[in-house]
């Protein structure tokens, strides 16, 4: 009795790369829309706060630190507090926050500072960004966890 069923499953799996694609399409679209929004906000911040020549790139630094803090809080909410719609994480986490924060500008900012002879500002950015970003994501996750779930009260 189970043989036809099992066979059916096997046949469907073998012949169906398309439905997998169809399931991915809304996720990819959500990531794209979120990414467009996040990058727009990042562009607005960089216009409002242009990096001075040879100076510390504060706009990129703050964008990355703030984005990491929001990511820490967001991930605790969607993994430990409530189960959201399946497009929430692709849209907001992967899309908006991923498009808002940037690793390439961080790297190229440092490269340009060092190339232009501002090694001290470059090295400060090199070390301060990951330190602040990791502190932000860790503290935001811990604070959100404590606030919303009551867990980890002794660890913070």
């Amino acid at each position: 009795m189970t043989a036809p069923e099992a066979e059916g499953v096997r046949v469907r799996r073998a012949a169906s790369p398309r439905p997998a694609w169809r399931a991915q399409a809304p996720v990819v679209a959500a990531v794209a829309c979120g990414g467009g929004i996040g990058a727009t906000v990042r562009y607005a911040v960089s216009l409002a706060w242009p990096a001075p020549a040879g100076g510390f790139p504060w706009a990129t630094f703050l964008i990355n630190v703030v984005g990491c803090a929001v990511m820490g809080a967001f991930m605790v909410v969607i993994t430990e507090v409530r189960t959201p719609h399946r497009l929430v994480r692709p849209f907001f986490g992967t899309g908006v926050l991923g498009g808002f924060t940037t690793f390439s500008t961080y790297a190229v900012d440092i490269q340009r500072l060092i190339d232009a002879g501002h090694a001290r500002a470059g090295l400060a950015c090199l070390a301060a960004t990951p330190l602040a970003a990791l502190t932000a994501v860790g503290l935001a996750a811990a604070a959100t966890r404590r606030l919303l779930t009551g867990k980890g009260k002794n660890s913070l």
Binding site: G35, G72, T101, S104, T105, V137
Partner: peptide
């Protein structure tokens, strides 16, 4: 493109 292709938030979260 490069700004959205790369990410600091996911990098930090995955490290955490």
């Amino acid at each position: 493109l490069c700004g959205a292709l790369t990410t600091y938030s996911t990098f930090s979260y995955e490290t955490l």
